[in-house]
Design a protein around this nucleic acid. Structure first.
Lengths: 291, 291
DNA sequence: CCTGCAAAG
DNA sequence: CTTTTCAGG
């Protein structure tokens, strides 16, 4: 049995529950579920969700800046050894965008990266988004050096890394989510020892994780791949599958995830940080379509 | 063919249109339709409503104080000779609660009386509501003296006149809508030459025009009769029927109305104000259940 | 509970 | 377009 981690920007957990979130949760086969944009305080969660038994361990992070805004969560079948809900920077922490949980074999982060644009293409929040991105990777790299345990960062990154990752790359070079500076910042951060698990395992596959609510754009599959599973290089050889469940409804995002084979690391926890694999040493070799 | 006037607090005309308002409008058999709480500027009306052909003449009054608040309208099959949308008092006019239209045979007002209570039973707006009530009747009495033409005032009056007019009179003597001062003010105004057409024609009948949205109160018929057709005494003998269509859905209020026989007044417009009829001279005789 | 608004996505 | 919150009813 692989260890499955799934991420989903639910765009309001209460709305998503009304559209069948609990059935999805029961059937998703995950060991850990990362959620973003829950837009709900724990006290206001639907009782059916709070009393749900399959994921006994749930951790919710709420935005302090504004009610009903942002918020992330991690649900797991086994109890986490440790939870971190602060990036050590109030301007980021107040928006409820980050949660890290440590398990036996690895650490899992649920992260909701800022959107960058307000209305249309004013792109006023791009600087904040870039600073957040740098900060998250700095933070996780530090955690990783200190703990020596692999990390999987899953969440809504709000960046399509390459032209293959959105239906209309040409028309969106000035749209936040596909700006050169956003792609460069993300590539630089990933270059410090991370892999985009989906693209590594599916070099040519065209699937999206987000579609605008407006018009009938999802039916025409005019979307973006902006929800990601980024894994530290030591974890990449253990990724057996990476998937986007773009048929799942309930949000303007689709869930995506990875299956990990943790047999060896799980049985040898005392072994310490693994040396980077060959694939991990050459992130450029992880296969990008269009090159 | 009687002349039918119908009133309906639609609680948002756009919402009501989504729930079948146009089918109702086509079938209601009215010559004049008075609406309250349209909560929509004319420019934002659904196109299906704006292009509707049955009621060619429509007049919309919008609240200036707040977008999406209050607002009344009058729709008619024949063009009004004159329209009045000001009570001559800015504190009332700004809330878009009054519209008067003059037709050949009579004048019709669509009026949305203030609610009196904010949340629950703070009753903070009761003084404003009483002042509005006095002002509307003063205004219409003046119009009537000047023009000598009968008036029908239809709308959401937000007062249940007598215990028979609400399901829970005992428990609501401190609730706005059934406060002694509200009932007294209304009775005093009506006493100056007006009749509650529904109660005059249906002395014993128990029907309501409003039910709270909360709980399943409408199914249990725990309601209030607060939408009324008040007619000047010269008009009362011409009222053939008064009805509440409490089966009609689409709002938390039900439509109600009156059928008038205008043959005589219509054929003899030069006759001037009619002398009050016997019934009009004794409003106490109009039959109140529970006395 | 339901409407329409505003901010955000 | 859709989710929240909010005021108002």
């Amino acid at each position: 049995m692989p260890f499955r981690i799934v991420t989903w920007n639910v765009n309001g957990i209460r709305s998503c529950v009304r559209k069948g979130f609990l059935d999805w949760l029961a059937d998703c086969g995950a060991d850990v579920v990362a959620l973003q944009e829950v837009r709900c305080e724990p006290a206001d969660l639907p009782p059916e969700l709070s009393s749900q038994k399959r994921f006994r361990h749930a951790s919710w992070v709420t935005a302090r800046s504004k009610k009903g805004y942002s918020g992330v969560a991690l649900l797991s079948r086994k109890p986490p050894l440790r939870r971190v809900d602060s990036l050590g920077e109030e301007s980021f922490d107040r928006e409820g965008r980050f949660l890290l949980a440590e398990f036996e074999e690895l650490q899992v982060a649920s992260v909701y990266f800022p959107k960058g644009s307000g209305n249309e293409r004013d792109n006023s929040r791009v600087p904040y988004k870039l600073a957040f991105t740098e900060h998250v990777f700095d933070f996780l790299d530090r955690v990783r050096r200190r703990e020596g345990k692999p990390i999987a960062l899953l969440g809504d990154v709000n960046v399509a890394p390459e032209p293959i990752d959105l239906a209309r790359p040409k028309g969106n070079e000035k749209t936040s989510g596909f700006l050169p500076e956003e792609r460069e910042t993300l590539a630089r951060c990933l270059g410090r020892g991370w892999a985009d698990a989906y693209r590594a395992l599916e070099p040519e596959r065209v699937q999206y994780t987000w579609w605008s609510n407006r018009f009938g754009v999802r039916e025409k599959n005019i979307g973006w791949r902006i929800d990601h599973a980024f894994v530290t290089h030591d974890l990449l050889p253990r990724v057996r599958r990476a998937f986007i469940h773009d048929h799942v409804r309930g949000s303007d995002h689709a869930p995506m995830g990875i299956d990990l084979d943790l047999r060896e690391t799980a049985s040898r926890p005392a072994r310490g940080p693994r040396a980077p694999s060959a694939a991990a040493d050459r992130p450029r070799a992880r296969g990008r379509a269009g090159r």
